[in-house]
Simulated scan of single mutants.
Amino acid sequence: MKKRILALWIAILMIASIFTGCAQKSESGDPVSSEPEKTVFRVGMECSYAPFNWTQKDDSNGAVPIMDSSDYAYGYDVEMAKRICEANDWTLEVYKIDWDGLILALNANKIDAIIAGMGVTEDRLKSVDFSDYYWSGDMVMIVKEDSPYVDATSLEDFKGAKVTSQLNSVWMDLIPQIPEVDEQPGLGGNSEILVAVRSGKIDATVLGETEAYSAVLANPDLKIVSFEKGKGFDYSEGEASNAVALRKGDSELQATINEVLAGISSEERSKLMAKITELQPMAE
């Protein structure tokens, strides 16, 4: 009896060793790598906000796949996300999310960061933290080239004008600074806003300087109206800048991203933005 039990145990051990050996080999017979998988960095953006981010049909110029889609994302924000991932050996995943849903998605842990040309405001700081700035600009207005406001030099000159911008944006918050402005309901995005200006539905819109340059490059019948200091909008540096939004208290990720951003000089950022603006789909 003892011999039979001993033989049974030997057989069990031999079978176990065979299966253990198989588990350590791939289908090709080569050993399976024991290296840990790369960290995935999930980034949310609109993918419709050139030159910061947009949607295209292929991976040209270094565009990356949009998750759960056959399309690709590219733009200045995508390049910033790629550099953060390259510096840390992370895998980048881009998720296309409507503007109003970005912070909700971040705080629901559906994404790890928002890189979407987002300005830093006191209201947003209540629900998210931000990295250092990765882009800064001025605040301007856009009008039609034949508009009576095209030669305006101050906000005073826009008295009574019909003005709007993107809903829930920094720009929308600036409109009440225009004397006796006829503020119109906020619109969904830049494309819709520019159509409204071109059609005469509104007289002007407020945009960041970079976005405005992008808009007139694609629409030569539009013009930028900028202001001298003291004659334009009153805003903070954060409102005119863009940073990566992170969940509250995610200080480790914040420090990691800031380290990467610190290694990108202002000259390099300007050159990259100039290149990206020329590549945007609307400019073709």
Rank of each mutant, 00 (worst) to 15 (best):
D112V: 07
L261H: 07
D173Q: 11
G232T: 00
Y134E: 05
V140L: 07
T91I: 06
F19D: 12
D132E: 14
W9L: 12
D146W: 02
V206T: 03
F130E: 06
S154I: 07
T210C: 06
T39R: 15
P185W: 01
Y235W: 11
I66K: 00
L187Y: 01
V128A: 05
V140T: 06
E145I: 15
V78T: 01
E237Q: 15
I66W: 01
V120A: 10
T91Y: 08
E35T: 04
D250E: 06
P148L: 14
L261A: 02
D77H: 05
R83D: 09
P148G: 13
D138E: 14
G75L: 07
W9N: 07
E86F: 07
S60K: 15
L155G: 03
C85W: 06
D71A: 10
E79F: 13
C22Q: 11
S131T: 14
T91D: 15
D123T: 13
S127N: 10
D138C: 01
P36Y: 12
K25G: 03
I178P: 10
L6K: 11
D250M: 03
M139L: 10
P176N: 14
Q184C: 00
L217R: 07
L6Y: 03
G44F: 09
D98C: 02
K38A: 14
P148H: 13
L8N: 09
K223Q: 10
K2C: 01
M141P: 14
S214T: 10
Y74T: 10
F130N: 04
V244D: 08
E252Q: 04
A11G: 11
D100F: 05
Q24G: 06
V195H: 15
D100K: 08
W9T: 09
A196P: 00
F227A: 02
Y133F: 15
I5Y: 11
I15D: 08
E37D: 11
S147K: 02
P281Q: 10
W171Y: 11
S34A: 13
